[in-house]
């Protein structure tokens, strides 16, 4: 039996076009053995959730540098719930102050990484999340 491949959606919501981080992370995760879907810029929460469902990803990572995190994360969570896809994890990275992070964690958002995070930390985080799944 083949091992389950972890599938990750890396998305860039909103209007901000700074995709350096998203692309570096997408590539780094590929090099760590994950299957990564990258959807490009200017994604709405609806597009992100639709993609996540069709691709049956295990986890969504959003890169937000524009300060719109308090709008976008809750909206993606809401849509995941609405579509019965709460088993899909949501994490993110970008410029997110501690105070907002706390609020988002309480809503059920997974880890939010700061600028300057090593890709290996993200890899470790994802691997820990899916420990059981991988050893299936």
């Amino acid at each position: 039996m083949e091992k389950k491949k972890i599938k990750i959606l890396i998305a860039k919501p909103g209007l901000d076009g700074h995709d350096r981080g998203a692309k570096v992370v997408a590539r780094g995760l590929r090099d760590a053995g994950f299957e990564v879907i990258y959807t490009g810029l200017h994604q709405t929460p609806e597009m992100i959730v639709n993609t996540a469902i069709q691709e049956d990803v295990d986890i969504i990572g959003l890169s937000i540098l524009s300060g719109a995190h308090m709008t976008i994360f809750p909206e993606v969570l809401r849509l995941l719930k609405e579509k019965g896809a709460t088993d899909i994890h949501l994490f993110g990275g970008g410029i997110i102050p501690d105070e907002d992070k706390e609020k988002l964690y309480q809503m059920g958002v997974g880890k939010l990484f700061d600028p300057g995070t090593k890709i290996s930390e993200i890899v470790e985080y994802i691997n820990n999340l899916f420990k059981e799944k991988v050893s299936e």
């Binding site: 901000d16 300060g67 719109a68």
Partner: peptide, 21 residues
């Protein structure tokens, strides 16, 4: 960002980004 992309503040894509950056 909405202004940078030529969108008015009430454009649906502008949600959460008006006056932020």
């Amino acid at each position: 960002y909405p202004t940078l992309l030529g969108r008015d503040s009430d454009d649906p894509m502008a949600r959460g980004e008006v006056g932020v950056c």
